[in-house]
Design a protein around this nucleic acid. Structure first.
Lengths: 205, 205
DNA sequence: GTCTATACTCCGATAGAC
DNA sequence: GTCTATCGGAGTATAGAC
Protein backbone atom coordinates (compact mmCIF):
# COMPACT_ATOMS: atom_id res chain seq x y z
CA UNK A 1 0.00 0.00 0.00
CA UNK A 2 1.42 3.29 1.20
CA UNK A 3 3.44 5.23 -1.33
CA UNK A 4 2.72 5.47 -5.01
CA UNK A 5 5.10 7.16 -7.41
CA UNK A 6 2.83 10.15 -7.46
CA UNK A 7 2.96 10.57 -3.71
CA UNK A 8 6.73 10.41 -3.48
CA UNK A 9 7.13 12.70 -6.47
CA UNK A 10 4.91 15.27 -4.79
CA UNK A 11 6.72 14.90 -1.46
CA UNK A 12 10.12 15.31 -3.09
CA UNK A 13 9.08 18.43 -4.98
CA UNK A 14 7.30 19.95 -1.99
CA UNK A 15 10.19 19.29 0.39
CA UNK A 16 12.54 21.12 -1.91
CA UNK A 17 10.24 24.06 -2.65
CA UNK A 18 9.03 24.55 0.94
CA UNK A 19 12.62 24.63 2.15
CA UNK A 20 13.60 27.08 -0.56
CA UNK A 21 10.71 29.53 -0.53
CA UNK A 22 8.70 28.69 2.56
CA UNK A 23 5.28 27.10 2.81
CA UNK A 24 2.92 30.02 2.13
CA UNK A 25 4.96 31.32 -0.81
CA UNK A 26 4.96 27.96 -2.60
CA UNK A 27 2.01 27.20 -4.85
CA UNK A 28 0.50 23.77 -5.41
CA UNK A 29 0.72 24.42 -9.11
CA UNK A 30 4.47 24.85 -8.81
CA UNK A 31 4.81 21.65 -6.79
CA UNK A 32 2.74 19.54 -9.15
CA UNK A 33 4.46 21.00 -12.20
CA UNK A 34 7.85 20.10 -10.75
CA UNK A 35 6.63 16.65 -9.74
CA UNK A 36 5.10 16.06 -13.17
CA UNK A 37 1.70 15.19 -11.76
CA UNK A 38 -1.75 16.67 -11.96
CA UNK A 39 -2.73 19.59 -9.77
CA UNK A 40 -5.50 17.62 -8.07
CA UNK A 41 -3.10 14.87 -6.99
CA UNK A 42 -2.14 16.85 -3.90
CA UNK A 43 -5.72 17.08 -2.75
CA UNK A 44 -6.35 13.43 -3.48
CA UNK A 45 -3.31 12.04 -1.68
CA UNK A 46 -2.87 14.55 1.14
CA UNK A 47 -6.27 16.18 1.50
CA UNK A 48 -4.93 19.72 1.20
CA UNK A 49 -1.78 21.80 0.99
CA UNK A 50 -1.66 21.73 4.76
CA UNK A 51 -1.98 17.94 4.83
CA UNK A 52 1.05 17.77 2.57
CA UNK A 53 2.99 19.97 4.96
CA UNK A 54 2.08 17.81 7.93
CA UNK A 55 3.21 14.68 6.14
CA UNK A 56 6.55 16.35 5.37
CA UNK A 57 7.03 17.44 8.96
CA UNK A 58 6.52 13.93 10.27
CA UNK A 59 8.74 12.41 7.62
CA UNK A 60 11.41 14.92 8.58
CA UNK A 61 11.26 14.89 12.38
CA UNK A 62 10.44 11.26 13.15
CA UNK A 63 13.86 9.79 12.26
CA UNK A 64 15.59 12.63 14.10
CA UNK A 65 13.62 12.02 17.26
CA UNK A 66 14.15 8.27 17.00
CA UNK A 67 17.90 8.82 16.90
CA UNK A 68 17.69 11.14 19.89
CA UNK A 69 15.81 8.64 22.01
CA UNK A 70 17.98 5.68 21.00
CA UNK A 71 21.19 7.52 21.81
CA UNK A 72 19.83 8.86 25.08
CA UNK A 73 18.87 5.31 26.09
CA UNK A 74 22.37 4.17 25.29
CA UNK A 75 24.07 7.06 27.09
CA UNK A 76 21.98 6.55 30.21
CA UNK A 77 22.70 2.83 30.18
CA UNK A 78 26.42 3.52 29.90
CA UNK A 79 26.26 6.11 32.70
CA UNK A 80 25.19 3.41 35.15
CA UNK A 81 22.89 5.57 37.21
CA UNK A 82 25.14 8.64 37.10
CA UNK A 83 23.90 11.76 35.26
CA UNK A 84 24.89 11.91 31.59
CA UNK A 85 27.55 14.56 30.98
CA UNK A 86 26.01 17.87 29.87
CA UNK A 87 28.05 18.16 26.67
CA UNK A 88 27.12 14.62 25.74
CA UNK A 89 23.45 15.30 26.41
CA UNK A 90 23.47 18.41 24.25
CA UNK A 91 25.19 16.59 21.43
CA UNK A 92 22.61 13.81 21.56
CA UNK A 93 19.92 16.43 21.08
CA UNK A 94 21.60 18.49 18.36
CA UNK A 95 23.63 16.00 16.32
CA UNK A 96 20.73 14.11 14.68
CA UNK A 97 19.50 17.39 13.21
CA UNK A 98 22.89 18.18 11.73
CA UNK A 99 23.21 14.61 10.45
CA UNK A 100 19.91 14.84 8.64
CA UNK A 101 21.46 17.18 6.13
CA UNK A 102 24.43 15.02 5.29
CA UNK A 103 22.53 12.31 3.43
CA UNK A 104 22.93 14.17 0.17
CA UNK A 105 24.54 17.52 -0.19
CA UNK A 106 21.49 19.26 -1.59
CA UNK A 107 19.25 17.98 1.19
CA UNK A 108 16.92 20.79 2.10
CA UNK A 109 15.66 19.12 5.28
CA UNK A 110 17.38 21.33 7.84
CA UNK A 111 16.20 24.54 6.26
CA UNK A 112 12.75 23.02 6.23
CA UNK A 113 12.94 22.21 9.92
CA UNK A 114 14.12 25.68 10.77
CA UNK A 115 11.52 27.22 8.51
CA UNK A 116 8.67 25.32 10.10
CA UNK A 117 9.49 26.43 13.59
CA UNK A 118 9.21 30.04 12.57
CA UNK A 119 6.31 29.76 10.18
CA UNK A 120 3.33 31.51 11.75
CA UNK A 121 1.10 28.54 11.04
CA UNK A 122 -1.40 27.79 13.83
CA UNK A 123 -1.79 24.10 13.12
CA UNK A 124 1.94 23.68 12.82
CA UNK A 125 2.51 25.30 16.20
CA UNK A 126 0.03 22.84 17.60
CA UNK A 127 1.72 19.91 15.90
CA UNK A 128 5.38 20.50 16.69
CA UNK A 129 5.19 20.36 20.50
CA UNK A 130 3.10 17.20 20.13
CA UNK A 131 5.74 15.49 18.00
CA UNK A 132 8.58 16.70 20.21
CA UNK A 133 6.94 16.00 23.56
CA UNK A 134 8.49 12.57 24.25
CA UNK A 135 11.97 13.87 23.45
CA UNK A 136 11.51 17.05 25.46
CA UNK A 137 10.39 15.15 28.55
CA UNK A 138 13.33 12.74 28.44
CA UNK A 139 15.80 15.52 27.72
CA UNK A 140 14.53 17.81 30.48
CA UNK A 141 14.69 15.00 33.02
CA UNK A 142 18.29 14.23 32.09
CA UNK A 143 19.10 17.97 32.20
CA UNK A 144 17.76 18.30 35.73
CA UNK A 145 20.01 15.45 36.83
CA UNK A 146 22.99 17.21 35.21
CA UNK A 147 22.25 20.57 36.76
CA UNK A 148 20.39 19.94 40.01
CA UNK A 149 20.91 23.51 41.23
CA UNK A 150 18.95 25.02 38.33
CA UNK A 151 15.19 25.38 38.40
CA UNK A 152 13.17 23.61 35.73
CA UNK A 153 11.93 27.02 34.53
CA UNK A 154 15.45 28.26 33.86
CA UNK A 155 16.38 24.99 32.16
CA UNK A 156 13.31 25.27 29.94
CA UNK A 157 14.06 28.81 28.89
CA UNK A 158 17.72 28.04 28.23
CA UNK A 159 16.71 25.03 26.17
CA UNK A 160 14.75 27.44 24.02
CA UNK A 161 17.87 29.61 23.70
CA UNK A 162 19.74 26.55 22.45
CA UNK A 163 17.00 25.55 20.04
CA UNK A 164 16.82 29.10 18.70
CA UNK A 165 20.57 29.17 18.11
CA UNK A 166 20.39 25.83 16.31
CA UNK A 167 17.47 26.82 14.10
CA UNK A 168 19.06 30.14 13.24
CA UNK A 169 22.33 28.66 11.99
CA UNK A 170 20.49 25.86 10.18
CA UNK A 171 18.48 28.50 8.40
CA UNK A 172 21.50 30.42 7.24
CA UNK A 173 23.08 29.48 4.00
CA UNK A 174 26.48 30.29 2.63
CA UNK A 175 28.10 32.59 5.11
CA UNK A 176 27.85 34.32 8.46
CA UNK A 177 29.39 37.76 8.30
CA UNK A 178 31.59 36.50 5.50
CA UNK A 179 32.66 33.37 7.37
CA UNK A 180 31.96 30.21 5.42
CA UNK A 181 29.78 27.57 7.06
CA UNK A 182 31.06 24.61 5.12
CA UNK A 183 32.25 22.73 8.16
CA UNK A 184 29.05 21.66 9.84
CA UNK A 185 30.80 19.43 12.36
CA UNK A 186 32.88 22.33 13.62
CA UNK A 187 29.76 24.45 13.94
CA UNK A 188 28.05 21.68 15.88
CA UNK A 189 31.07 21.34 18.20
CA UNK A 190 31.06 25.03 18.93
CA UNK A 191 27.32 25.12 19.47
CA UNK A 192 27.68 22.28 21.98
CA UNK A 193 30.41 24.17 23.86
CA UNK A 194 28.50 27.43 23.74
CA UNK A 195 25.24 25.89 24.93
CA UNK A 196 26.87 23.88 27.72
CA UNK A 197 28.53 27.02 29.06
CA UNK A 198 25.20 28.85 28.81
CA UNK A 199 23.31 26.13 30.67
CA UNK A 200 25.94 26.12 33.41
CA UNK A 201 25.76 29.88 33.98
CA UNK A 202 24.43 30.51 37.50
CA UNK A 203 20.76 31.38 37.56
CA UNK A 204 19.33 34.58 39.00
CA UNK A 205 18.97 34.80 42.73
CA UNK B 1 5.20 65.16 1.90
CA UNK B 2 5.89 62.35 4.32
CA UNK B 3 2.94 60.67 5.95
CA UNK B 4 -0.69 61.01 5.02
CA UNK B 5 -3.39 59.45 7.12
CA UNK B 6 -3.75 56.76 4.51
CA UNK B 7 -0.09 55.82 4.70
CA UNK B 8 0.01 55.51 8.47
CA UNK B 9 -3.27 53.60 8.53
CA UNK B 10 -1.84 51.11 6.06
CA UNK B 11 1.42 50.82 7.99
CA UNK B 12 -0.37 50.23 11.28
CA UNK B 13 -2.60 47.54 9.82
CA UNK B 14 0.23 45.85 7.96
CA UNK B 15 2.54 45.84 10.97
CA UNK B 16 -0.04 44.04 13.02
CA UNK B 17 -1.06 41.54 10.36
CA UNK B 18 2.47 40.72 9.18
CA UNK B 19 3.51 40.05 12.76
CA UNK B 20 0.49 37.88 13.36
CA UNK B 21 0.32 35.80 10.20
CA UNK B 22 3.56 36.46 8.37
CA UNK B 23 4.17 38.39 5.20
CA UNK B 24 3.23 35.90 2.49
CA UNK B 25 0.07 34.78 4.27
CA UNK B 26 -1.27 38.31 4.64
CA UNK B 27 -3.30 39.73 1.76
CA UNK B 28 -3.38 43.35 0.69
CA UNK B 29 -7.16 43.13 0.77
CA UNK B 30 -7.02 42.23 4.43
CA UNK B 31 -4.64 45.09 5.17
CA UNK B 32 -6.63 47.71 3.33
CA UNK B 33 -9.90 46.48 4.81
CA UNK B 34 -8.45 46.80 8.31
CA UNK B 35 -6.97 50.21 7.51
CA UNK B 36 -10.23 51.42 5.98
CA UNK B 37 -8.60 52.47 2.72
CA UNK B 38 -8.86 51.41 -0.88
CA UNK B 39 -7.00 48.36 -2.15
CA UNK B 40 -5.05 50.37 -4.69
CA UNK B 41 -3.71 52.71 -1.99
CA UNK B 42 -0.95 50.25 -1.09
CA UNK B 43 0.34 50.16 -4.61
CA UNK B 44 0.12 53.91 -4.93
CA UNK B 45 1.92 54.78 -1.70
CA UNK B 46 4.42 51.92 -1.44
CA UNK B 47 4.73 50.64 -4.98
CA UNK B 48 3.99 47.06 -4.08
CA UNK B 49 3.36 44.67 -1.21
CA UNK B 50 7.12 44.23 -0.95
CA UNK B 51 7.67 47.99 -0.83
CA UNK B 52 5.32 48.11 2.13
CA UNK B 53 7.34 45.39 3.86
CA UNK B 54 10.60 47.25 3.32
CA UNK B 55 9.15 50.42 4.78
CA UNK B 56 8.04 48.50 7.85
CA UNK B 57 11.45 46.91 8.32
CA UNK B 58 13.21 50.24 8.29
CA UNK B 59 10.66 51.83 10.60
CA UNK B 60 11.14 48.92 12.97
CA UNK B 61 14.92 48.48 12.98
CA UNK B 62 16.18 52.04 12.66
CA UNK B 63 15.27 53.19 16.19
CA UNK B 64 16.63 49.96 17.65
CA UNK B 65 19.96 50.39 15.92
CA UNK B 66 20.12 54.05 16.91
CA UNK B 67 19.72 53.08 20.55
CA UNK B 68 22.41 50.44 20.21
CA UNK B 69 24.92 52.86 18.75
CA UNK B 70 24.15 55.63 21.22
CA UNK B 71 24.52 53.34 24.23
CA UNK B 72 27.67 51.76 22.88
CA UNK B 73 29.16 55.24 22.42
CA UNK B 74 28.30 56.07 25.99
CA UNK B 75 29.61 52.77 27.39
CA UNK B 76 32.90 53.11 25.56
CA UNK B 77 33.28 56.70 26.72
CA UNK B 78 32.69 55.61 30.31
CA UNK B 79 35.15 52.73 29.97
CA UNK B 80 37.97 55.21 29.37
CA UNK B 81 39.89 53.06 26.91
CA UNK B 82 39.26 49.79 28.75
CA UNK B 83 37.13 47.10 27.05
CA UNK B 84 33.43 47.32 27.82
CA UNK B 85 32.34 44.46 30.08
CA UNK B 86 30.92 41.52 28.11
CA UNK B 87 27.58 41.40 29.93
CA UNK B 88 27.15 45.14 29.41
CA UNK B 89 27.97 44.82 25.72
CA UNK B 90 25.46 42.03 25.22
CA UNK B 91 22.78 43.98 27.03
CA UNK B 92 23.41 47.01 24.83
CA UNK B 93 22.80 44.82 21.81
CA UNK B 94 19.74 42.94 23.08
CA UNK B 95 17.90 45.41 25.30
CA UNK B 96 16.69 47.82 22.59
CA UNK B 97 14.91 44.94 20.88
CA UNK B 98 13.12 43.95 24.08
CA UNK B 99 12.30 47.60 24.77
CA UNK B 100 10.70 48.02 21.38
CA UNK B 101 7.81 45.89 22.51
CA UNK B 102 7.07 47.79 25.66
CA UNK B 103 5.71 50.94 23.98
CA UNK B 104 2.23 49.52 24.03
CA UNK B 105 1.38 46.10 25.26
CA UNK B 106 -0.04 44.88 21.98
CA UNK B 107 3.00 46.02 20.04
CA UNK B 108 3.71 43.36 17.44
CA UNK B 109 7.13 44.73 16.53
CA UNK B 110 9.30 42.02 18.07
CA UNK B 111 7.39 39.21 16.43
CA UNK B 112 7.74 41.13 13.21
CA UNK B 113 11.49 41.41 13.65
CA UNK B 114 11.82 37.72 14.42
CA UNK B 115 9.55 36.83 11.56
CA UNK B 116 11.52 38.85 9.04
CA UNK B 117 14.80 37.20 9.84
CA UNK B 118 13.34 33.81 9.08
CA UNK B 119 11.17 34.75 6.15
CA UNK B 120 12.70 33.21 3.02
CA UNK B 121 12.48 36.48 1.17
CA UNK B 122 15.44 37.16 -1.12
CA UNK B 123 15.22 40.94 -1.08
CA UNK B 124 14.79 40.93 2.67
CA UNK B 125 17.91 38.83 3.16
CA UNK B 126 19.75 41.38 1.08
CA UNK B 127 18.33 44.26 3.06
CA UNK B 128 18.85 43.12 6.65
CA UNK B 129 22.65 42.79 6.65
CA UNK B 130 22.81 46.19 4.98
CA UNK B 131 20.75 47.82 7.71
CA UNK B 132 22.62 46.00 10.47
CA UNK B 133 26.14 46.46 9.11
CA UNK B 134 27.13 49.57 11.12
CA UNK B 135 25.97 47.98 14.37
CA UNK B 136 27.60 44.63 13.61
CA UNK B 137 30.96 46.24 12.89
CA UNK B 138 30.94 48.26 16.10
CA UNK B 139 29.73 45.34 18.18
CA UNK B 140 32.28 42.88 16.76
CA UNK B 141 35.12 45.31 17.40
CA UNK B 142 34.06 45.75 21.02
CA UNK B 143 33.67 41.96 21.37
CA UNK B 144 37.20 41.35 20.17
CA UNK B 145 38.48 43.73 22.82
CA UNK B 146 36.47 41.85 25.47
CA UNK B 147 37.65 38.42 24.39
CA UNK B 148 41.07 38.86 22.78
CA UNK B 149 41.82 35.12 22.90
CA UNK B 150 38.88 34.25 20.65
CA UNK B 151 39.16 34.34 16.87
CA UNK B 152 36.88 36.66 14.96
CA UNK B 153 35.35 33.61 13.25
CA UNK B 154 34.31 32.05 16.55
CA UNK B 155 32.96 35.38 17.79
CA UNK B 156 30.91 35.77 14.60
CA UNK B 157 29.40 32.31 14.85
CA UNK B 158 28.62 32.73 18.54
CA UNK B 159 27.00 36.08 17.82
CA UNK B 160 24.70 34.22 15.47
CA UNK B 161 23.90 31.76 18.26
CA UNK B 162 22.93 34.71 20.43
CA UNK B 163 20.83 36.33 17.72
CA UNK B 164 19.11 33.02 17.03
CA UNK B 165 18.25 32.57 20.70
CA UNK B 166 16.89 36.11 20.87
CA UNK B 167 14.78 35.77 17.73
CA UNK B 168 13.42 32.43 18.84
CA UNK B 169 12.16 33.64 22.20
CA UNK B 170 10.82 36.85 20.67
CA UNK B 171 8.87 34.75 18.23
CA UNK B 172 7.28 32.64 20.94
CA UNK B 173 4.06 33.80 22.43
CA UNK B 174 2.42 32.76 25.64
CA UNK B 175 4.48 29.96 27.04
CA UNK B 176 7.62 27.88 26.74
CA UNK B 177 6.95 24.31 27.84
CA UNK B 178 4.18 25.65 30.02
CA UNK B 179 6.34 28.38 31.55
CA UNK B 180 4.82 31.81 31.15
CA UNK B 181 6.90 34.46 29.41
CA UNK B 182 5.25 37.48 30.98
CA UNK B 183 8.42 38.77 32.58
CA UNK B 184 10.42 40.01 29.64
CA UNK B 185 13.07 41.68 31.77
CA UNK B 186 13.82 38.42 33.52
CA UNK B 187 14.07 36.65 30.20
CA UNK B 188 16.46 39.33 28.95
CA UNK B 189 18.59 39.01 32.08
CA UNK B 190 18.87 35.28 31.66
CA UNK B 191 19.64 35.58 27.97
CA UNK B 192 22.47 38.00 28.82
CA UNK B 193 23.91 35.57 31.36
CA UNK B 194 23.51 32.61 29.06
CA UNK B 195 25.09 34.37 26.09
CA UNK B 196 28.00 35.79 28.10
CA UNK B 197 28.84 32.31 29.41
CA UNK B 198 28.59 30.95 25.88
CA UNK B 199 30.89 33.63 24.44
CA UNK B 200 33.43 32.95 27.19
CA UNK B 201 33.56 29.21 26.56
CA UNK B 202 37.07 28.31 25.34
CA UNK B 203 37.25 27.89 21.60
CA UNK B 204 38.40 24.72 19.82
CA UNK B 205 42.11 24.07 19.65
C1' DG C 1 -8.30 3.33 -6.46
C1' DT C 2 -5.96 6.92 -9.41
C1' DC C 3 -5.99 10.51 -11.86
C1' DT C 4 -7.83 14.41 -15.06
C1' DA C 5 -10.44 18.38 -16.26
C1' DT C 6 -12.75 22.01 -14.71
C1' DA C 7 -15.04 25.50 -11.90
C1' DC C 8 -15.14 28.57 -7.89
C1' DT C 9 -13.33 32.09 -4.97
C1' DC C 10 -9.60 34.97 -3.59
C1' DC C 11 -5.07 36.93 -4.37
C1' DG C 12 -1.55 40.93 -6.11
C1' DA C 13 -1.12 44.17 -9.56
C1' DT C 14 -2.39 47.72 -12.82
C1' DA C 15 -4.73 50.83 -16.23
C1' DG C 16 -7.59 54.48 -16.52
C1' DA C 17 -11.68 57.36 -14.92
C1' DC C 18 -12.57 60.80 -11.53
C1' DG D 1 -4.74 61.17 -4.65
C1' DT D 2 -8.33 58.06 -4.92
C1' DC D 3 -11.23 54.56 -6.73
C1' DT D 4 -13.34 51.03 -10.05
C1' DA D 5 -12.66 47.39 -13.19
C1' DT D 6 -10.10 43.88 -14.67
C1' DC D 7 -6.28 40.42 -15.45
C1' DG D 8 -3.61 36.26 -14.66
C1' DG D 9 -2.61 33.14 -11.15
C1' DA D 10 -3.37 31.10 -6.59
C1' DG D 11 -5.80 27.10 -3.32
C1' DT D 12 -9.54 24.15 -3.17
C1' DA D 13 -13.28 20.97 -4.35
C1' DT D 14 -15.60 17.81 -7.24
C1' DA D 15 -17.48 15.23 -11.24
C1' DG D 16 -16.24 11.81 -13.97
C1' DA D 17 -12.65 9.15 -17.03
C1' DC D 18 -9.62 5.18 -16.61
Amino acid sequence: MASSNTQTAVLDAARELFAEKGYPATSLREITRKAGVNLAAVNYHFGSKEGLLKELVRECLDPINEKRLTRLDQAEAEANGQPVELEHLIRIFLEPVFESMECDEANPMPCLIARMHHEPHPQLHQMLPEILAPVVIRFMTALQRCLPDHSVEVLSVRSQFMVGAMLHVLDMHETINGVRLDDREQMLQDLVRYSAAGYRAPQMS
